[in-house]
């Protein structure tokens, strides 16, 4: 069965791109969220296999959201979508329980490679 993904980013542009990447990799995007608050809600509701999480978002940052989701479910798999220059934030997210990260701008191959590895489907 296709793995179920929740895409979190405040930019529709980014969400669409990430959704397309997952679709091309045979994943099922089951939901999206535009901020950390929504992300936590949607995670409770959808229980996805994987979350991609933007860091800088209104209301609640990706780091806060990661912390809360991991508190609910220590096994949640969260991949941070970061940019160069956000190294310390990504490390903070990893501290909070994020499983891995990708660096914008990313290409489909890189994203899917990271995701597959994280889900234990790596080579």
């Amino acid at each position: 069965m296709a793995k179920r993904v929740l895409v979190v980013d405040d930019a529709i542009f980014m969400r669409n791109m990430i959704k397309d990447i997952f679709a091309s990799g045979g994943f099922e995007v089951v939901g999206e969220a535009a901020n950390g608050l929504e992300a936590v809600e949607k995670y409770k509701e959808l229980k996805p296999d994987l979350i991609t999480m933007d860091i800088v978002m209104p209301f609640k940052s990706g780091i806060e959201a990661t912390r809360e989701i991991i508190k609910q479910d220590a096994n949640a798999v969260i991949i941070m979508c970061s940019a160069l220059g956000q190294e310390s934030l990504v490390m903070e997210a990893i501290e909070a329980g994020a499983s891995d990260f990708i660096v914008k701008p990313f290409r489909a191959e890189d994203v899917l490679a990271v995701v597959k590895k994280v889900l234990g489907e790596g080579a």
């Binding site: 535009a34 901020n35 209301f59 806060e64 934030l89």
Partner: peptide, 20 residues
């Protein structure tokens, strides 16, 4: 590990994002 200084400060709740 200590959180990097200044990190997270940018993550306070912001103006409503009604567009979502």
């Amino acid at each position: 590990a200590p959180a990097p200084a200044g990190a997270g400060a940018a993550e306070k709740p912001k103006e409503p994002d009604t567009g979502s």
